[in-house]
Design a protein around this nucleic acid. Structure first.
Lengths: 257, 257
DNA sequence: GCAATAGTGTCTCTAAGACACTATCGT
DNA sequence: ACGATAGTGTCTTAGAGACACTATTGC
């Protein structure tokens, strides 16, 4: 083996190369599952995931994560964003890479390394979704239902499980809760989003801590109108509740201090 | 387009496929840079990264992260582990996937999507390292030096920067400090590891909080010998200091509670 | 007035943060 | 005795956690 001086001497494709580098996208939303009937109260909400029923080999008929093969002219993020827009037509998505899936023979079509992203989307944006041409059907499932009762295509069960774990972790350590909330929200709505994603989360003093505690000051702030008057809403109750908004501040948490 | 019933109908390779899916590994260690001369005291330590000088096109002569092309018979983790062992001969590494790099034309050899791992290795293990056959030289660099003064091959500057950010974040939110420490360590040694990776970390009451605070109880415990007597060391000072060990407990931190 | 949700008063216990102090031990 | 690092005493202020209480308003 010599030391080639330039590209002309480089002999590519000496080895087998991958048969594709697709993206799979775990599109999460928090959906209202029980509308309030007559009484004013917080509706029940649950974490859902968008799945597509495959209409071609392999795993025809099974539910799968949306996705598709990436192209050499785009980065994987751009590819994922393109796929996401095809499904949801969301313009400025929360879209984050979280893992790669490369177990040999995970896809019968060949050596296919899949890149998994998750997206957080407001329920309202998924209202006008449409089926892509490679899918017989598109549907939102409760994540619990998808993991416990469906037989997903490929290794998508593992991908969905990993995605949920990642979102649960980020829900407690970052401010991604904002992706599931309107600009201005009440404390109870925030609390519900956290609990919907992290069922074990419980904190009787939540309101005090999130608003009054010095170390957390700056995380959220009271919403005010043009005159500086605090804004409230009574959409969830008879009594008006203070509206809050997230600030730009992203706290860093440490196990040591 | 019909609905093919099985693999025989599947026509693969309709599109261009990637030219390779390599792994790049950011191998971190914390190295002693000033041995104590005469006096007993903590040596200065710094975060270092292992780099390889390329001896072939492209970017011949530049320093690069160790890595190599993965094979269809192995997962990317196995591939990364194989590469890591070739460089360091470490048997049970801390090795974690953290990102993918797929910008078009990031590699002049073609459509090459690189998978970045970071490894945390004890300084002692890197003592008997050897050059792999595709590298002219192997060397440890201070991470600051590598980022500020070297011109790394490909997009390895970006990869190294991302890896450092990830390790800094995990240093504060997980117990990866253990990877840079002996089984049993003093509080000051732990404090130094955290500060070496995260220069902004400062906490005058560190010892109190990490040992006495209820919410952190279970993170570390006092090292004891067979008779249950507390173990101490005077390797860093004249006075003996208590030795501690990490437990299996991994705390979860939240910005809300 | 009732129901339903929003929000407060108040008490106890624990932690944070600061700073000066004591302890140990090789040289 | 000195120097260097390990570790403690103690005080003030803030937050956690619990629980019962008051407030608002549509019906």
């Amino acid at each position: 083996m010599g030391t080639p001086e330039n590209a002309a001497n480089y002999t590519a494709k000496k080895y087998r190369t991958p048969d594709g580098a697709p993206c799979d996208i775990v599109i999460f939303t928090i959906a209202t599952v029980e509308a309030q009937i007559h009484k004013k109260s917080l509706p029940r909400r649950e974490l859902q995931v968008l799945l597509i029923q495959r209409k071609a080999w392999p795993d025809e008929g099974k539910w799968a994560l949306p996705g598709g093969f990436s192209m050499p002219t785009e980065s994987l993020y751009e590819s994922a964003r393109r796929e996401l827009q095809e499904e949801t037509s969301v313009e400025s998505p929360y879209l984050e890479y979280f893992n790669v899936y490369s177990t040999p023979n995970r896809d019968p079509r060949g050596w296919i390394i899949s890149h998994a992203y998750f997206a957080l989307v407001q329920e309202s944006i998924l209202a006008n979704r449409r089926a892509a041409d490679d899918a017989a059907d598109v549907k939102l499932f409760s994540v619990d239902e998808a993991l416990n009762t469906l037989h997903l295509a490929f290794d998508h069960h593992e991908i969905l499980r990993d995605a949920r774990a990642r979102v649960q972790h980020k829900m407690l350590t970052t401010t991604i809760a904002r992706e599931f909330l309107p600009e201005e929200f009440t404390i109870v709505e925030l609390y519900q989003v956290i609990q919907t994603v992290c069922p074990d989360f419980e904190d009787p003093n939540f309101k005090r801590k999130v608003t009054a505690t010095k170390t957390r000051q700056g995380l959220i702030e009271e919403a005010r109108d043009d005159q500086g008057v605090k804004k409230t809403t009574n959409r969830n109750s008879q009594r008006h509740a203070q509206l809050y908004r997230f600030t730009d501040y992203e706290p860093i948490v440490s196990i040591y201090q």
